[in-house]
């Protein structure tokens, strides 16, 4: 019995659902690879969150009529838009960051990992459990404030070369 090496791609030999899954994975992989280099939306979202958050800082006297809209915007953008944009970008971009030849990018990237995670998780805690006044909630609020404050500038340091704020290239 002779054997013949198949020239048909493997997927073609697979059952239809499996093939679909493989195509889907390929598309995802391709999308994520592309997304890893598309920083603009993610960066804009972080910048907007940074400034809308800044308006909520008690040290900055902002009229409540403005601050209340800033709060709902910050909250909704942080809950919905941030995970879908910056969050996805971060997932896609992480591999580049970790394998970068440049030490600065690796270090600031790793730091950003921690900062973004802290900021997002503390934001969720504040939204759903609240800054109620006890020690854990106060620490959470401080963590959100501090990580948010660092996040914006650190992101610029990390990727100033590609930043949307760099108008004159």
């Amino acid at each position: 019995m002779s054997t013949r090496q198949s020239t048909v791609p493997a997927s073609d030999t697979l059952p239809a659902p499996m093939a679909l899954k493989q195509r889907y994975q390929a598309w995802i992989s391709s999308y994520m690879t592309r997304l890893a280099y598309e920083n603009k939306t993610a960066e804009w979202v972080v910048i907007v969150l940074f400034f809308s958050g800044l308006l909520l800082w008690d040290a900055i006297p902002v009229d409540w009529a403005i601050a209340r809209w800033s709060l709902i915007f910050h909250l909704l953008a942080g809950l919905i838009v941030f995970p879908l944009t910056t969050g996805l970008f971060w997932v896609a971009h992480r591999r580049l960051m970790l394998t970068s030849d440049k030490g600065v990018l690796r270090k600031t990237g790793a730091f950003l990992d921690a900062i973004i995670g802290t900021c997002f998780v503390s934001g969720l805690v504040l939204t759903f459990l609240g800054e109620t006044g006890n020690l854990p909630s106060n620490l959470t609020a401080d963590a959100h404030w501090l990580s948010g404050l660092i996040l914006g500038p650190l992101m610029l340091v990390h990727a100033w070369r590609y930043s949307v704020l760099r108008f004159k290239k």
Partner: peptide, 25 residues
């Protein structure tokens, strides 16, 4: 008041206003 706080007959708005109060009480 917070956005949605006065819409006392809307569950969504009340939920949202509670989240805002939580976040910045």
């Amino acid at each position: 008041h917070y956005v949605g706080e006065t819409h006392t007959d809307s569950a969504v708005m009340q939920w949202l206003s509670s989240r805002q109060i939580n976040s910045k009480p």
